[in-house]
Amino acid sequence: MTGGLLFASVGVILFAMGVAGVLLLGHLLRRILAFNIMGSGTFLVLVALAQRNGIADPVPQAMVLTGIVVAVAATALALALARRLYVLTGKLELSQDDEE
Protein backbone atom coordinates (compact mmCIF):
# COMPACT_ATOMS: atom_id res chain seq x y z
CA MET A 1 0.00 0.00 0.00
CA THR A 2 1.43 3.35 -1.01
CA GLY A 3 1.33 6.42 1.21
CA GLY A 4 -1.41 7.92 -0.93
CA LEU A 5 -3.66 4.92 -0.54
CA LEU A 6 -3.07 4.86 3.20
CA PHE A 7 -4.17 8.49 3.51
CA ALA A 8 -7.16 7.84 1.27
CA SER A 9 -8.20 4.90 3.48
CA VAL A 10 -8.02 7.10 6.56
CA GLY A 11 -10.10 9.64 4.67
CA VAL A 12 -12.78 7.04 3.93
CA ILE A 13 -12.93 6.04 7.59
CA LEU A 14 -13.17 9.68 8.68
CA PHE A 15 -15.99 10.26 6.18
CA ALA A 16 -17.97 7.28 7.46
CA MET A 17 -17.46 8.36 11.06
CA GLY A 18 -18.53 11.89 10.21
CA VAL A 19 -21.71 10.82 8.42
CA ALA A 20 -22.65 8.51 11.28
CA GLY A 21 -22.03 11.39 13.67
CA VAL A 22 -24.20 13.86 11.77
CA LEU A 23 -27.01 11.32 11.61
CA LEU A 24 -26.83 9.99 15.16
CA LEU A 25 -25.63 12.71 17.50
CA GLY A 26 -28.12 14.93 19.25
CA HIS A 27 -26.10 17.91 20.37
CA LEU A 28 -25.85 20.46 17.59
CA LEU A 29 -22.20 21.36 18.22
CA ARG A 30 -21.25 17.71 17.97
CA ARG A 31 -23.18 17.34 14.76
CA ILE A 32 -21.40 20.37 13.32
CA LEU A 33 -18.04 18.90 14.35
CA ALA A 34 -19.07 15.58 12.80
CA PHE A 35 -19.86 17.39 9.57
CA ASN A 36 -16.36 18.84 9.61
CA ILE A 37 -14.81 15.42 10.18
CA MET A 38 -16.83 14.16 7.24
CA GLY A 39 -15.54 17.02 5.10
CA SER A 40 -11.94 16.47 6.16
CA GLY A 41 -12.23 12.81 5.24
CA THR A 42 -13.49 13.74 1.78
CA PHE A 43 -10.67 16.24 1.27
CA LEU A 44 -8.14 13.61 2.30
CA VAL A 45 -9.56 11.17 -0.27
CA LEU A 46 -9.60 13.85 -2.95
CA VAL A 47 -5.92 14.75 -2.52
CA ALA A 48 -4.48 11.37 -1.55
CA LEU A 49 -6.23 9.09 -4.03
CA ALA A 50 -5.12 11.26 -6.94
CA GLN A 51 -1.52 11.13 -5.69
CA ARG A 52 -1.41 7.42 -5.00
CA ASN A 53 1.49 7.02 -7.42
CA GLY A 54 3.54 9.59 -5.57
CA ILE A 55 3.27 12.41 -8.14
CA ALA A 56 1.94 15.66 -6.71
CA ASP A 57 -1.17 16.93 -8.52
CA PRO A 58 -1.99 20.61 -7.98
CA VAL A 59 -5.57 20.30 -9.29
CA PRO A 60 -7.08 18.36 -6.35
CA GLN A 61 -5.05 20.49 -3.96
CA ALA A 62 -6.69 23.61 -5.36
CA MET A 63 -10.08 21.88 -5.23
CA VAL A 64 -9.54 21.09 -1.56
CA LEU A 65 -8.68 24.73 -0.86
CA THR A 66 -11.98 25.66 -2.49
CA GLY A 67 -13.75 22.92 -0.54
CA ILE A 68 -12.30 24.11 2.76
CA VAL A 69 -13.58 27.63 2.20
CA VAL A 70 -17.03 26.27 1.35
CA ALA A 71 -16.92 24.11 4.49
CA VAL A 72 -15.97 27.14 6.58
CA ALA A 73 -18.95 29.00 5.20
CA ALA A 74 -21.29 26.09 5.91
CA THR A 75 -19.89 25.66 9.43
CA ALA A 76 -20.31 29.34 10.23
CA LEU A 77 -23.87 29.22 8.97
CA ALA A 78 -24.64 26.12 11.03
CA LEU A 79 -23.12 27.69 14.14
CA ALA A 80 -25.14 30.86 13.61
CA LEU A 81 -28.35 28.86 13.29
CA ALA A 82 -27.51 26.74 16.32
CA ARG A 83 -26.75 29.84 18.32
CA ARG A 84 -29.98 31.45 17.22
CA LEU A 85 -31.92 28.35 18.21
CA TYR A 86 -30.22 28.48 21.61
CA VAL A 87 -31.17 32.13 22.08
CA LEU A 88 -34.79 31.37 21.17
CA THR A 89 -35.36 28.05 22.95
CA GLY A 90 -32.47 27.61 25.38
CA LYS A 91 -31.70 24.24 23.79
CA LEU A 92 -28.91 23.07 21.53
CA GLU A 93 -30.75 20.06 20.18
CA LEU A 94 -33.39 19.50 17.55
CA SER A 95 -36.42 17.86 19.08
CA GLN A 96 -37.18 14.39 17.78
CA ASP A 97 -40.97 14.42 17.96
CA ASP A 98 -41.58 16.72 14.98
CA GLU A 99 -39.45 14.59 12.70
CA GLU A 100 -42.27 12.88 10.83
Binding site: A8, F15, G18, V19, V22, L23, F35, M38, G39, G41, T42, F43, V45, L46, L49, A50, R52, V59, P60, M63, G67
Partner: peptide, 15 residues
Protein backbone atom coordinates in the same frame (compact mmCIF):
# COMPACT_ATOMS: atom_id res chain seq x y z
CA UNK B 1 -24.75 15.35 4.08
CA UNK B 2 -26.15 15.17 0.55
CA UNK B 3 -23.43 17.33 -0.95
CA UNK B 4 -20.83 15.60 1.23
CA UNK B 5 -21.74 12.24 -0.26
CA UNK B 6 -21.71 13.84 -3.71
CA UNK B 7 -18.24 15.31 -3.11
CA UNK B 8 -16.83 11.96 -1.95
CA UNK B 9 -18.13 10.50 -5.19
CA UNK B 10 -16.38 13.28 -7.11
CA UNK B 11 -13.15 12.59 -5.20
CA UNK B 12 -13.32 8.90 -6.10
CA UNK B 13 -13.99 9.72 -9.75
CA UNK B 14 -11.07 12.12 -9.87
CA UNK B 15 -8.87 9.51 -8.22
Amino acid sequence: VGSGAYLLGVALIYG
